[in-house]
Design a protein around this nucleic acid. Structure first.
Lengths: 192, 192
DNA sequence: CTGTCCATGTAAGGCGTTACATGATTGT
DNA sequence: ACAATCATGTAACGCCTTACATGGACAG
């Protein structure tokens, strides 16, 4: 399961509290693996019962106790195994495409509205990717490491695939507006 | 929820059994919205209790009863409303990208294996898309309708985005093999 | 005579979401 | 005074998956 392994991955960098993990997720992998707070706490206790993490309880007089989690040796092994094992084809769900699939039941105006909305969603995601890429560029100039390189790759992936989706959605808008319903060959028509 | 609306969409084309629906899903939208059998039967009974579909029981002497579902007027309204309402940004989960994100913990060989595996997965998906596109092309030549056009769009979408992912993954392989860890700008480097 | 197709479901478990609950500290 | 941040969790619900269960018809 990916969430538990992502948590192990972050804990292998340094020990953290559940709260810290939530922040780290939101600042790094949320675009390709969002995690919410209650999920993180639940998964941490599962990982602990499996022996993959251990917790150090820090008692504090005036505040709630703080629990700092670290990865154990079995946890490291589990992480390395999962990271290096290729995954089978994953299911993919895109509700927007269902709407388009049944677009025959809608007016052109409605379909165009749907597509323009999707374009906005993709653009907003891309703005976030670009902002994050900027941060990484700064880090890379100071200290270009192999680790950093691999953590940037998913961002580039998000940007490229969104960008090609955007290009393609704009073409679809043209085809709807001109009433050109012929099928195109996406691969052949791409390199332009 | 998308599954129930996809079911309504198919039933709006013609009445069907749960078994038929499963086949229709597998032959059309499974690439962007897979559905399994038990899910379909459960959702059908929910839709019935909401009054969006109704069933006709066909008793057969020698076999099990067959239940043919059709969409009701409230179901049509619900479908049209859902289809024409833009969706908010959806969560996106891609476990492969988590593996890459933590690629710093792996050897180059391991990362390359992961990527080549992903390339194979994408290629196999694209072969299926291409085969389906071929079928649609045949239908379109006989009878080019607006409905047909919209049902092809998601296939083209899958093909284009997979193709751009493939192109990009191949570039990543080059960068790993040459040890070139500089960050590229995916958007600027795309049109080549 | 073995497997695949037709056709129906139930049960249990896993993963994810939303909402609720607590309570001190720090910033505006 | 009010909101945000730090820090912990629980409860309930919803969606999806896997496995189980039934049983005739038909093709190789």
């Amino acid at each position: 399961m990916s969430l538990s392994h992502a948590i192990l991955g972050f804990l292998s960098l340094k020990p953290m509290t559940g709260y810290d993990l939530k922040k780290v997720f939101d600042r790094s992998v949320r675009h390709f693996w969002p995690a919410n707070q209650s999920q993180i706490y639940r998964t941490l206790s599962e990982l602990r019962s499996e022996g993959f993490v251990e917790q150090e309880v820090v008692e504090r007089e005036d505040r709630l106790d703080m629990k700092i989690y670290s990865i154990t040796d079995p946890g490291q092994q589990e992480l390395n195994l999962w990271l290096s094992t290729p995954l089978p084809e994953q299911d993919y769900r895109e509700a927007f495409l269902i709407q388009i699939y049944f677009g025959g039941k809608l007016t052109d105006t409605d379909v165009i509205t749907l597509i323009k909305h999707e374009i906005k969603n993709l653009q907003s995601a891309n703005e976030q990717y670009t902002a994050m890429l900027g941060l990484y560029r700064g880090k890379m100039q100071q200290n270009p490491t192999r680790e950093l390189f691999f953590s940037v790759i998913p961002l580039e992936y998000g940007l490229t695939s969104n960008q090609s989706a955007l290009n393609w959605l704009n073409k679809v808008l043209d085809r709807i507006e001109t009433g050109d319903y012929s099928i195109i060959d996406p691969i052949k028509s791409e390199p332009e």
